[in-house]
């Protein structure tokens, strides 16, 4: 007789106890759905990392040049002469006063705006080209060599050429991100067109649809899930490319903020930049996933 006593909800949420369904399974090793969240251990990991950060700098185990203190470390019993700004204090001052006369949110928005603009331009050009390649053999023949040649080149490798052509201003960054997004969107749109099940196309023609109607009402909606996956990938790739481009040359943006801070040995600003880049990248990914569920609920259900 199995133990009928149920674990508390808190214990299940924290992952220290299996949920009631998993508890009834006898085969657990090898069953991925029987591995619970282990949230307690996630909390422990974060806490340990923060404590380690606090501790190594509090006790002076790391030079602040290499790794900044988490907080100022000035407690009532400390010697005021030891006071120095920590990352938390620096973040507060960046939010309130900005960095080198530019508010922090403006650095962030500059970077995000460049990504959005680059992805938008890439999608506007790439989707029609991808459709053309998927639907027409002349277009496929014309574009295939270019696509296959440029596809394996990382966008970062184009930075020197783009700087030679367009310098280091906004146009150069937009163009670089446009190129990065263009080929991803083109390939995604082409795959979306190719993925249409022929019986859907046949059904539409048998129902009296014309070629433009088949394109508009069957091929386009059928390709939307792949196009959206392309948008998500482009956002990720463009974000990475942009930060690199800003590290090379820019007067605004998260990457440029970090490069300037490096020159002044402001390791705390550099670390804040790294964390910001991670948080923004994560947020973009989450927003895109939510948008996908909202806009394309039929994905994977054909």
């Amino acid at each position: 007789m199995a133990d009928r006593k149920q674990p508390s909800k808190l214990a299940v949420w924290l992952g220290v106890a299996d949920n009631p369904f998993t508890r009834q399974k006898t085969v657990k090793f090898g069953d991925a759905s029987a591995v619970n969240s282990g949230r307690l251990w996630s909390v422990a990991t974060v806490a340990a990392l923060l404590f380690a950060w606090w501790a190594v700098t509090r006790w002076g185990l790391l030079d602040p040049i290499f790794w900044p203190p988490l907080d100022g470390g000035l407690y009532p019993w400390d010697n005021p002469a030891r006071a120095r700004p920590g990352v938390v204090d620096r973040f507060a001052s960046l939010v309130v006063e900005g960095y080198r006369n530019v508010p922090l949110w403006e650095h962030v928005w500059t970077s995000v705006r460049r990504v959005l603009l680059g992805v938008l331009c890439g999608a506007l050009a790439g989707i029609p080209l991808g459709f053309a390649m998927g639907l027409n053999s002349v277009a496929r023949g014309l574009l295939d060599p270019v696509v296959e040649f440029i596809r394996p080149i990382p966008p970062l490798a184009l930075i020197p050429l783009v700087i030679l052509w367009l310098g280091i201003d906004e146009a150069a960054k937009t163009f670089l991100l446009f190129l990065a997004a263009l080929f991803i969107m083109l390939i995604a749109a082409r795959a979306g067109v190719s993925s249409v099940r022929i019986s859907k196309v046949h059904a539409a023609y048998s129902l009296g649809a014309s070629k433009p109607q088949v394109l508009r009402y069957v091929i386009l909606p059928n390709a939307l899930p792949e196009i959206f996956t392309g948008l998500r990938t482009s956002m990720g790739v463009c974000w990475g490319t942009l930060v690199a481009a800003e590290l090379v040359a820019a007067d605004q943006g998260v990457g440029s903020m970090m490069m300037v801070a490096k020159n002044f040995l402001q390791t705390d600003v550099v670390v804040i930049g790294i964390i910001l880049i991670g948080v923004i990248g994560f947020t973009i990914e989450m927003l895109m996933r939510a948008l996908e569920v909202w806009l394309i609920p039929w994905k994977g259900k054909g």
């Binding site: 059904a203 048998s206 909606p221 939307l224 259900k301």
Partner: peptide, 28 residues
């Protein structure tokens, strides 16, 4: 060629999954 005088019912997977039942029926 295909024409609406000859309707077709397929085995499965030929409905337009981005449409509702009513939109599918009203497609033609």
């Amino acid at each position: 060629g295909p024409h609406k005088e000859r309707g077709m019912v397929f085995q499965q997977g030929a409905l337009f999954e981005w449409m509702t039942a009513a939109e599918n029926v009203g497609f033609g």
